[in-house]
Computed example of a mutant assay.
Amino acid sequence: MTELPSSMDWVKHAPQSSKIERLEAYFSAHGFDPHRHDTYAIGRTLSGVQSFKYRGANRNSLPGETLVLHPDEEHDGHAGSSSGFRYRMLYITPALVQEILNGKPLPFLQGGISQDPRLAAATDAILSAMDHHLDPLEEDDSLFGLVSVLQTVCKCPVPKMLHDYGAARRAREFMDDCVEQSITLDDLAACANRDRWSLSKDFRAYFGTSPHRYLTMRRLDRVKTFILGGMNLTDAAVAAGFFDQSHMSKHFKKAYGISPSRWSRSLRGLSF
C-alpha cells in the first residue's frame, strides 16, 4: 500500500460521541491494509462495490447492504469497480454491546454482509444524520434497537460452556482504570478472583478479544485523544503506555490499516 492514496479519497468523521464512532468515506481504489478492530464495525455501502477479504474469503458489499464485521476479525478494503466505493460506518465496543445483552453471547453474522431490511433500518437510524450530534436519548434508543435486531438476525446460539461475565467485566474495568500501567494476566486474575486461563476464555467470550489486545486498543484510544489535543506522536505514544513511537505506530497500523500520521491528516480535513 502506498502511504498516500489518491487525492480523490476522503474520510469525514461525524461529531464525537462518548459511546460510538461514526464516519463516511470514499476510496477510488485501495482503501486500507488488513487490520483488526476490537469493536464491531457496522455500516452501509452507499455507492460502488466495497470489496474486502474477511474470514478467508473475498466479499463484495453492494449499495443497500449492511456490513457487520465482528470484533478482532481481520479485514481490508478496496474498490471492486472502477467507480470506487463510498460507505458509512459506525464502531461499537463489545463492552457497550454487553451492557445491552448483559452477559449473552456476542452476535456473529456469518459472512459479514446482510440484506435483512430490519438490520438496514436499525443501522440507518444511527448513520442517517452524520453532520449532527446524536441526542443522548436518541442514541441510546438507537443502539438498543441495533443490538436487539443484530441478536435476532444472527440467531445467537446458547453457549456450550458457562463463562463468568462478572470476572470478565472486573478485568475490563481494571484495565480501563490502569491503561498506562504495566499489567499482567496475574494482575487481572487477582482483581477478577478467577484463575488466569479461565479469565482469558471469559474475556474473549464476552468482549470479543484477548485482554492484551483490549489493553492495546485502549492505549491507542489515548493516543488518538492526545494527537487531537496537539501532542506529537512520540510524546503521545509514551503518555499512552507504549514503549516508544515505533511500538505505538506498529499497533496503530495493525488496528486501523493506516499510519497514525495519515489518520491525523484525515481528521484535519487534509489530503491523504
Rank of each mutant, 00 (worst) to 15 (best):
A41I: 13
A189R: 04
Q115L: 11
T225W: 05
N102A: 15
V238C: 06
P15G: 00
E24M: 11
G48N: 06
S83W: 01
P34L: 15
T93W: 03
R262W: 00
K104G: 13
A237Y: 04
I258Q: 11
S200Q: 07
S83P: 00
D202L: 08
P117C: 01
Y91W: 06
D124E: 07
T209I: 08
P260I: 14
D187M: 01
E24W: 04
S6E: 05
R194Y: 10
T225C: 04
R204T: 13
F272L: 10
A125E: 01
M1N: 08
D187E: 04
E180M: 04
I42H: 05
R213M: 06
N232W: 11
V68N: 03
H13I: 07
S7Y: 12
Q110G: 14
V68E: 02
K104I: 13
Y165M: 04
E21S: 11
G64F: 00
R196H: 07
S259K: 01
S210I: 01
L109N: 02
D116E: 07
D186V: 02
E173L: 14
G56D: 10
I126V: 10
I258S: 11
R22G: 00
G56L: 08
E3K: 05
D176F: 06
A192L: 04
E24F: 01
L199D: 09
D187L: 00
S17N: 01
R118H: 05
V147N: 04
S17R: 00
L101I: 09
E74Q: 14
Q151L: 05
M217R: 15
A171V: 12
A122R: 02
S47V: 06
G84I: 05
K12F: 07
F243A: 15
A239F: 10
